[in-house]
Every structure is written in structure tokens, then in C-alpha cells.
């Protein structure tokens, strides 16, 4: 069976004034239709860059490696250059929701007009029909007074409502793949819960594949089927969500879990992962995690380690160098 999305050996580098930054290092991931893949990791770990690579949204200073593949419907979308091809992965088969719902709407164009514009671009519809689809979609995501909101600007909506509208816009073209980049991070906690519930409903209803990016393992537990843990541009552990949460193998995953507050013992001090993420300009050689590992060995530092992931139980993959740590 072929996957909805397959990322193979993706490296992403950025040319900057300070030098060449390695943002993504040999990432491979798969996603099937109807499934939710959570990507989790501290900020700067390369989650957004991975998602943007799928739509070729990284800026002009980006360098992809030649043998990287991002396969959707048997096509390597990284090789797309023509306007028509790019359209397929931008709003056609793939849609994206961003972290800042306010900033992702153009401030001086009505929400409805932005929705119609997209529909006319991707679907064989008339303007009136596109308007109807948009209003139905706004209704579907729980926006009261959809017709009125359709004619408003983003600044006239509340934060939660804006993100609902963003979800409606992303779904209106019926994409196969939805990329949600921290869609609830900027929202209040109660609104966050509402939006997460909405997304869960919609994912089930539309049966698409979803990449759900967050730095919050608690959110992952609620929405994801599989999870990939990223650290400094690498996937250090991935597998089914229950397995990863109950039986984490990588010290970084354990660190993330330990850093969550304990519901049964709220007085216990929080245990953040010690140390800081190294600057991407001086990435550690050998095991990327060794500067923060609780028990780094001499081997971690030298080239004396095997790179890549190893399968420790069905579907559960861990970075080889850390599989026996701690």
C-alpha cells in the first residue's frame, strides 16, 4: 500500500550571513490517509521547516539535498517548479494552517474574498458557488453568523474565531493533506480545547492525512495516531503515540514527558530538560543530543557511532546512538 505522504532523507540547509545552517538532517517520515502524525520538539528543532518543505515555502536561501524525496501521489514534489505543479501542493492537495491566525489573513482583504480567491484558483466553480461553499465551511467550523463574518476583515474577529476561519479556508478546497503548524499555540487555553476538538471532528469527517505540529506532548496525546520527536533538525524517535508516551526510549523524549506537570502531584517541581539547544551554527558532531544527554559516552562524541534510527518494537524507531541511554 502506498502512503499518502512519504518524506525520504530530507536535508535542508540555509545560506545565511553567518554561514550555512543545517536546519534538517536526514529526516524520513510517512503518513497514511486518515491518520494524524504529530511532530513534537522544542522551538528551533525544525518542525516548521519540515512542513514548509512539503509546500516548497522555505525562502530563497534554502538548499535541499539532491537525493531528498517528498512523495505525494507518486510525484516528488520537491522537484516541482512550474506554476501548475506548485498549485497542486499549495492549496490543492495540501493546505496549511499557521500559528498566528491574525497574521495569516491579509488585513485589508475581506475574509470571504480570500476564501473565494482560493476556491476559484483550485476548483471549477462560479463565484456564487464559491461563496456558498465558503459560507457553508464557515458554518461547519462553528462560526455563528457565517454570512456576516464572510464580509468582515480578520481584525473584526476574535482569536479563536480567526483560527476557525483559517481552518475553514484550509479545508474548503478539500485537500488530502493538512499541515497544522502549532494551530493552537497562540490561543487561550479554553479556546485551545475547542479548536482541538473541532480539528479532531473534522479530521475524522474528511478522512484526510494531517501533520499536527506542536511543542506540547499533551496536545499530541489528544490528537495524534503517530508521533515523531524532533531535536535539532533530526527525528530522534518516532512510533505509535501510545507506545512513545508509555515506553519512551530516547532521553530527549523522556525529558519532554518529565517536563509536563504531573496531574496527581501538582506540587512536584517541574523538571525542564537541562541545558539549552545548541546554536544551529555549531551543531554537535556525532550524536546531536550529546550536549544535553544525561549520560553521554566517549563514543557519542567521536564518529564511532552508528547514525540513523533502529526499530525497537513494531513501528517504534529510535536514534541508534541513544537506544541504550539511561
Amino acid at each position: 500500500m502506498s502512503h499518502l505522504l512519504e518524506i525520504k532523507n530530507l536535508d535542508v540547509k540555509f545560506d545565511t550571513d553567518e554561514g550555512r545552517i543545517i536546519a534538517i538532517d536526514n529526516v524520513s517520515l510517512t503518513l497514511d490517509q486518515g491518520k494524524v502524525l504529530g511532530i513534537v520538539g522544542e522551538s528551533g528543532s525544525g518542525k516548521s521547516v519540515t512542513a514548509k518543505s512539503i509546500m516548497q515555502l522555505n525562502p530563497g536561501n534554502t538548499i535541499y539535498n539532491d537525493d531528498a524525496e517528498i512523495i505525494i501521489d507518486n510525484e516528488n514534489v520537491l522537484k516541482f517548479t512550474s506554476k501548475n505543479d506548485l498549485k497542486k501542493i499549495r492549496g490543492g492537495k495540501v493546505s496549511m494552517i499557521f500559528q498566528e491566525p491574525m497574521a495569516s489573513f491579509a488585513p485589508a482583504i475581506k475574509i470571504g474574498n480570500q476564501m473565494i480567491e482560493q476556491l476559484l484558483l483550485h476548483k471549477e466553480t462560479e463565484k456564487n458557488q464559491a461563496k456558498q461553499i465558503s459560507i457553508d465551511m464557515l458554518n461547519r467550523v462553528g462560526i455563528a453568523d457565517a454570512e456576516k463574518r464572510f464580509n468582515q476583515y480578520a481584525f473584526e474577529l476574535s482569536g479563536g474565531m480567526r483560527q476557525r476561519a483559517m481552518i475553514a479556508m484550509a479545508l474548503s478546497t478539500m485537500p488530502k493533506l493538512l499541515l497544522a503548524d502549532e494551530p493552537t499555540t497562540a490561543l487561550d487555553v479554553t479556546i485551545q480545547a475547542q479548536v482541538i476538538n473541532l480539528m479532531k471532528d473534522i479530521i475524522k469527517e474528511y478522512n484526510m492525512g494531517v501533520i499536527f505540529i506542536t511543542h506540547d506532548l499533551g496536545v499530541i496525546a489528544q490528537v495524534a495516531d503517530d508521533v515523531a520527536v524532533m531535536y535539532l533538525g533530526s527525528v530522534v524517535e518516532r512510533g505509535p503515540v501510545n507506545e512513545i508516551l508509555k515506553n519512551p526510549k530516547h532521553p530527549y523524549t523522556r525529558g519532554l514527558l518529565n517536563a509536563l506537570p504531573d496531574i496527581n502531584n501538582l506540587d512536584a517541581p517541574l523538571k525542564p530538560i537541562p541545558g539549552n539547544i545548541p546554536s544551529p551554527l555549531d551543531r554537535p558532531t556525532g550524536c546531536v543530543f550529546r550536549t544535553r544527554c544525561p549520560e553521554p559516552t566517549h563514543d557519542c562524541k567521536e564518529g564511532n557511532i552508528e547514525m540513523g534510527l533502529i526499530e525497537v518494537s513494531p513501528g517504534h524507531w529510535v536514534d541508534k546512538c541513544c537506544v541504550n541511554c539511561g
Binding site: 509546500m55 506554476k83 498549485k87 489573513f105 491579509a106 485589508a108 480570500q114 482560493q118
Partner: peptide, 29 residues
């Protein structure tokens, strides 16, 4: 550089249409 321009690009809008309707129109004020 603003996010809404990238969001518009992510919806498939490109070329002169993207340029005029998004950054250009918004810097006119």
C-alpha cells in the same frame, strides 16, 4: 516578510496577482 503573504502563497496564489493584491496593496497606505 509578513506571514499573510506566505499564507497566500500556501494557498496557491502566485506571480503578479500575489504581489499586487498582497504586499503591494498593503503598503499603499
Amino acid at each position: 516578510d509578513k506571514l499573510y503573504v506566505m499564507a497566500a502563497r500556501a494557498r496557491g496564489i502566485s506571480g503578479m496577482k500575489l504581489l499586487w493584491r498582497y504586499p503591494a496593496k498593503h503598503s499603499l497606505g
